[in-house]
Computed example of a mutant assay.
Amino acid sequence: MLGLTSFGGPIAHLGYFHDEYVRRRQWMDERSYADLVALCQLLPGPASSQVGMGIGLVRGGLLGGVVAWIGFTLPSVIMLMLFAFLIQGLDVGNAGWIHGLKLVAVAIVAQAVWSMGQKLTPDRSRATIAIIAMATALLWQTALSQIVIILAAGIMGILLYQRTEQSMITDVIIPIRRSVAIICLMLFFGLLIILPILRPIVNADGLSLFDSFYRSGSLVFGGGHVVLPMLEREVVPTGWITKADFLAGYGAAQAVPGPLFTFASYLGAMKSGVSGALLATVAIFLPAFLLIAGTLPFWNTIRKNRKMQGAFIGINAAVVGILLAALYHPLWTTAILTPVDFAFTSLLFLLLVFWKLPPWVVVVAGAVGGTIIGMLS
């Protein structure tokens, strides 16, 4: 049911999970849920999806984690696949409503920068890390750049924040043996290393698709919005999808419930139909599943290490900078073409941040407004 009703993005998803599984069903206590959320915020991948997987893992082991992921993800996968089939063959680049969706994407990512920046860069040193990360991401646009930025930010975090005071530690009990967890972690790193090596040797479309989305899901900190620049570099320069179609799908992904990472379902469908959508969806979520299943049994030990805590503080600051870079390019440079575009996007930002309207309402408003702007221009 949550897969059909969980509008509002990752923070809202965490609220839905808390209401359903902590308050109503009492599957977890408050402290265990808070510990699970903290772990998922620190791991690469979609935090809200990982929390859902984690709840399933706690209740039913590996099978429970898979079932929880399917229930939360499948509705938005189906919706975005249908959207992809709807716009295929259409000249979406010149459609007014598509331009409106591009403006919505700018407003929503600006909202993410606004909210994450307040939380993750509250002081001078973290703001500096964010700006350096932003400049690096803009000036060095390669698949390797984001990895280097994350690693460098982690080192800076260790140097600056390893003395951060720890809050009270509460153990999380998970029905997964440590041997199984180690296998999951080995699979995570093994696929991350092997897939890029096999890709040029095998030269198969399916393997290339799986590698691109698996790598994107493996190396993204900060959740759905931050995956945008990495996915854009994987699918637009390769010719798999046009930039107009890419931004149209990203705007549409804001209007459906569930995790933003199902944007991969749309991209896969645009590339290779139903099979491409399913392959891309599994590939982008698989790293998150392997990491949460592989890390939970060791979490109580890991989070007591102050160096690791400091590293994650630095990484979270860099995430804000990477997202700010994505706000400028490809979003701003592609969508904001006239003063009218800027004015309308500012209005959409106002509705999201200060009027706090649901994202799907803002998406509809953006599509209608884009159509009107197109008719008047």
Rank of each mutant, 00 (worst) to 15 (best):
F188P: 03
A311C: 12
I336L: 13
G217F: 10
S212G: 12
L290I: 10
A84S: 14
G15L: 08
W69Y: 12
V368T: 13
E20R: 14
M28P: 12
A288V: 02
I372S: 01
A326N: 08
A293I: 00
G117K: 12
Q309T: 15
L191Y: 11
P75C: 06
T238E: 11
A181N: 03
L267M: 13
L14A: 04
R25T: 09
A367W: 00
L296Y: 02
W299M: 06
I292F: 05
T333E: 12
V274E: 03
L347P: 07
G369E: 05
N316R: 15
A244Q: 13
S49W: 07
I78S: 00
F17E: 00
I150G: 05
V368N: 02
K356M: 04
A367C: 09
T128K: 06
G54N: 09
P287H: 07
A127R: 15
I322G: 06
D91K: 07
R25D: 05
W355N: 12
P297H: 09
K271Q: 11
Q254G: 05
A135T: 12
L286Q: 06
A127W: 11
P358Y: 00
G310F: 11
G64Q: 02
F263H: 04
P359N: 09
I201V: 14
I373Q: 11
T128L: 15
G223Y: 09
Q26M: 09
L357E: 02
A280E: 06
A153G: 08
I70N: 03
V256P: 13
L348P: 09
N94C: 10
L80A: 03
M53D: 05
L43Q: 12
A264C: 12
L195K: 08
A133P: 07
A244R: 03
I373L: 09
I87V: 15
G60S: 06
L39C: 15
T333K: 08
G374K: 08
V363Y: 01
G56D: 04
S377M: 14
M79W: 01
I292R: 04
A252R: 01
V220K: 03
L323C: 07
H18L: 07
P330V: 11
G310A: 13
M156A: 14
G366H: 01
G251V: 03
D29A: 08
Q111E: 10
G3S: 02
G369V: 07
A112P: 01
Q50W: 08
S346P: 01
L278V: 15
F349N: 12
L191S: 05
A269C: 14
I70Y: 08
Q254P: 09
T345H: 00
A280N: 07
Y16V: 02
W332R: 07
A326R: 04
A68M: 13
L350E: 03
F189M: 04
A47R: 04
L209A: 12
P44T: 08
P122D: 12
P237G: 10
L192Y: 14
I284M: 02
A110P: 07
G370K: 02
Y33A: 00
R306H: 15
L286Y: 01
W240R: 13
D171S: 10
L63T: 14
N94L: 10
F246T: 03
L42A: 15
S125L: 15
P330N: 04
V274P: 00
Q254H: 11
G268R: 01
L101Q: 01
R177Q: 13
M270C: 10
E232I: 08
S167P: 00
L267D: 05
I201T: 10
A112N: 06
F221Y: 15
G369W: 00
A317V: 14
N300S: 12
E30H: 14
